[in-house]
Each structure stands twice: as structure tokens, then as C-alpha cells.
Amino acid sequence: MEELKQYQIALEQFKNGDFTHFNEFYEQVKKPVFYNILSLTRDEFLAEDILMDTFVKFLQNINKMDSSKSILGFLIVTSRNLTLDYFKKHNRVEKIDESQTQMFIHNDTRSLMKINFLLEKIRSLLNDEEYDIFCLHTLSDLTFNEISNIKNKKLGTVLWQYNNAIKKVRKEINYEEYQ
């Protein structure tokens, strides 16, 4: 609740052209947005590019935003739309190729490599909706209420799909393997 208030105050400041606290705001929300993009792109560089575009678009639309609505929700939806636009434009199929994997290793971003492998595995287990909801909750830290708003689904449906996802993941993922 306190966080929500802070976002709302920040939003009003941004609307007035005061970006003094933009850095704090960004630091608070960048991770969920970034991981949301990463869950779709599984490419850190592309994810950062889209992260940039997401926040620029957020700032450009700041005056149209309703302070009572979820700012994180807006960022998540925007980032997903921009990612999908990117895919459409580049006719890209979601996958990680070997060169990317090598690149991760050379860059010593092993955690990213692990999460990508983990996401790849989870992606193969779940259907699109389940994967979406799973990532929004676990990666982007959205509450089920927020997810139900973003996806325009009933809370019960979101919970049911998340539980289905968790059941499938539990059966197939070995905790030790990804530690």
C-alpha cells in the first residue's frame, strides 16, 4: 500500500515534469519489468533495449495515465506489447541459439544462462497462458489480482491456471539441477 502511494506521488511529479525521483522509481520497478521481457525474449541485450523503450513510452504517455491504476501493470503490459511488436517486426521465433548461450558464458553471466535454461524448460512444460501467468507471478512479482487485471481474467481463473502450471513444473523440475 505504501509502495502504491509512492508510485502515485511519483506519477504526479512526473506529470508536472519533475523527474527528481525518477531514479528511485525506476530502481523499484525495473526488475519485474525486465524479467517480464526476458521471459519472452530470453535475450538480455534485447530485453534491456525493450526495457528502455518501455520506460520512454511510459514517460511519453504519463499525462494520459490514471494515478489510481496500477503503474506496474501499465509497464508490464507496455513491455509485453513492445516485445510482441518486436517479434512481429523481425518475424522472430522465440528461441535461444547456441551462439547466444556461448555469449552468456563468455560474459560470465551464468545466472542469466541458468534462468534462461530454466525458463526454456518451463516454457516447454506449460501452455502459453500458464507460462505467462507463471512468469508474471514468479519473475515479475505481480500479485494474482494484478495479473487478473492485466490479463482481463477472473481471479479464480488466474489462480487455477497458476496452480496447474505449478503442478506441471513440480513434476519435471529438479531443484538441485538448477541450484
Binding site: L112, I115, L118, T138, L139, I166, Y175, Y178, Q179
Partner: peptide, 11 residues
């Protein structure tokens, strides 16, 4: 599962 994902989120 959630913990596993959380642990990886250190990029």
C-alpha cells in the same frame, strides 16, 4: 519453485 526462480533473478 518460487525460490529457485528468485535465486536466478540476480542479473
Amino acid at each position: 519453485i518460487v525460490e529457485l526462480i528468485d535465486k536466478q533473478k540476480n542479473y
